[in-house]
């Protein structure tokens, strides 16, 4: 029998977070912390003549955005302990200084798999990020593993 849970929770929004305007200094700090050398993310003058006509965030910047509620109030539990199973990031448009970002969080998927050490359960929390124009910026899928 496949993993049983209330499938109506899939796709339900459990958090909406509006972030303050993105600051240029924050983007530069983030790029510096990564050791980023691409001037599109580190040098405003060079970036002005680049493909985005200005400084933009390094692509993984969106992973530092934290929703008000990291997990749903009634998150299903399938095991005794949980682990951070990592994040998948899909980028659609760059983040620019001054952007007002919004994150909408849902339970995207729940599944079970078996490995060398036994059964594992995965809960995928999807964080969809848009900007002030409603333009889709990124999708960050956060996997939580339980066993």
């Amino acid at each position: 029998m496949a993993l049983e849970f209330d499938r109506s929770i899939l796709g339900q929004v459990f958090d909406e977070t509006d972030f303050p305007p993105v600051e240029k200094a924050d983007l530069l700090q983030f790029a510096d912390a990564l050791g980023e050398t691409n001037p599109l993310y580190t040098d405003e003058a060079v970036a002005a003549n680049g493909p985005y006509s200005g400084l933009v965030a390094a692509p993984t910047y969106v992973t530092r955005l934290r929703p008000k509620k990291m997990t749903p109030e009634h998150m299903p539990r399938f095991g005794k302990v949980g682990f951070d199973g990592g994040r998948d990031v899909e980028i659609f448009a760059p983040v620019r200084p001054g952007d007002r970002l919004k994150m909408v969080s849902t339970i995207h998927d729940i599944y079970e798999k078996t490995g060398r050490s036994g059964s594992m359960y995965f809960i995928v929390l999807r964080n969809e990020i848009t900007n002030q124009d409603g333009q889709k910026i990124a999708i960050v899928d956060h996997r939580i593993m339980q066993r």
């Binding site: 496949a2 993993l3 079970e112 078996t114 059964s119």
Partner: peptide, 13 residues
């Protein structure tokens, strides 16, 4: 198709 109808491939059991 017959196999996909016969089995739920996502079932780990």
């Amino acid at each position: 198709d017959a196999m996909l109808q016969r089995f739920d491939f996502s079932n780990v059991r």
